[in-house]
Simulated scan of single mutants.
Amino acid sequence: MAFYFALTRWTLFDSTFVGLDNFRDFLAEQNLRIGFQNTLIYAVVTSGLKVVLGLLLGVLLTSKLKLRGFLRSVVFFPVLVSTVAVGITFSALLRPDTGLVNRALALVGIDGGDWLGDATTALLSVALVDVWKGVGIATVIYIAGIMSIPPEYHQAVAVDGGGAWHRFRHVTLPLSWPATYSVIILSFIGGLRSFDLIWTMTRGGPGFTSDTIASIIYKQYQAGFFGLSTAGNVLLFLIVTAIAVPLNYFLGKRQVTA
């Protein structure tokens, strides 16, 4: 139905067929280039950090730590919290004058900036909050992948005189590829569709500097251009598909050898 209504100007009560006009008008949106660029940057940064941090935390939390179970709960806890609640909380923590982050930095002599009000830091600040909230899922996937590796491989490296780094480099890293594959796909698609955290923390600001495609679409809904925003949703679906399908194919072709 979205594909059909993208070709109309519609309200709750009627619709008028306009063909491809909505798509032409949406592609002519002056902030679309910024939104598309921000969407890609956001997806790459969040997915990349989730892969790296998820792998490191997965290795740490499958080691022989005494507080291993507690730390797993701590890492996973942010996943359970509402995204809107996380956005509101970090908006308060990152305030330039009264935020806890800048107060903590001031104690060590660092002058913190306006993290969400500065065009150069707004998008990155939201991306880091997204990583904090979502890295728990990546860690759980990595824990499952690492625990599925037969212990005989680690024992073989130890017999050959290899240490912890050799076990990680030659066993854990290559044999946890299925977990890495899953984390990349899930987090990258999630980054391309990002909206709720960005809208809660910056509303696409300052100005339009942290707008993503999803936030631009939502602004069209707010303005009452329902057909135009529906066309934007269809285009976002096509963009995600055009990126995710080849990425899935490329990553799926990788063969892992011990």
Rank of each mutant, 00 (worst) to 15 (best):
A158S: 13
A242L: 14
N233C: 03
G58N: 01
T209M: 11
S63K: 08
F13A: 12
M147G: 04
G134W: 13
A2Q: 03
T46L: 08
L67V: 13
V18I: 14
P206G: 07
L238E: 08
I41L: 12
D196N: 06
Y4G: 02
S91Q: 14
T121M: 06
G162E: 02
G134L: 14
V183L: 07
L40A: 11
V171K: 15
I217G: 02
V45Q: 10
L128W: 08
Y181H: 10
T180N: 14
N38K: 09
A6N: 02
T257I: 12
T257N: 11
R95Q: 14
V81G: 01
D97K: 13
L94P: 02
P178G: 05
T209E: 15
A144D: 03
L55C: 02
T83H: 03
G58V: 03
L60S: 13
L27Q: 08
L105G: 09
A214F: 09
D14Y: 09
L61P: 03
V45L: 15
L71D: 02
A127D: 05
I141Q: 00
I141Y: 01
V18F: 11
G48L: 07
T202L: 05
P246E: 00
L71F: 12
I189Q: 15
I217D: 01
V256D: 07
R254G: 05
L56Q: 07
G117Y: 02
G224K: 06
D21H: 12
L67H: 10
A164S: 08
L124D: 05
L60I: 05
L124F: 15
G207Q: 09
L80V: 15
F23T: 00
W177Q: 07
S229W: 09
I110Q: 10
S215R: 00
Y221A: 00
S82G: 13
L105H: 12
F70Q: 08
L94Q: 09
G232M: 02
T139A: 10
V81R: 04
L107W: 11
Y153T: 03
V59N: 08
A231G: 03
V18M: 09
G109T: 12
F76W: 06
L192T: 07
A214I: 03
A43I: 11
I185Y: 05
F77D: 00
L192E: 06
T257L: 10
Q30Y: 10
V129M: 09
Q37L: 14
R9C: 01
V51M: 10
M1T: 14
T139R: 12
G87Y: 11
T98S: 14
L71I: 07
I189D: 11
M201G: 03
A242V: 12
G163K: 12
S176A: 09
L107D: 10
T241C: 07
S15W: 14
G87M: 06
A231I: 06
T172Q: 00
V135H: 06
A156F: 07
T98A: 14
A43D: 04
L7R: 05
P206N: 09
G163W: 09
S91I: 10
P206T: 06
F226T: 04
M1Q: 13
R167V: 02
R68H: 01
T200M: 14
G99K: 10
V245A: 04
S73M: 15
K50M: 15
A214C: 04
R95A: 13
L53N: 03
W10R: 10
P174S: 11
D160V: 09
V79E: 05
V183S: 00
L236V: 12
I216A: 07
Q222Y: 07
T139G: 10
S176C: 04
T200Y: 04
R33K: 12
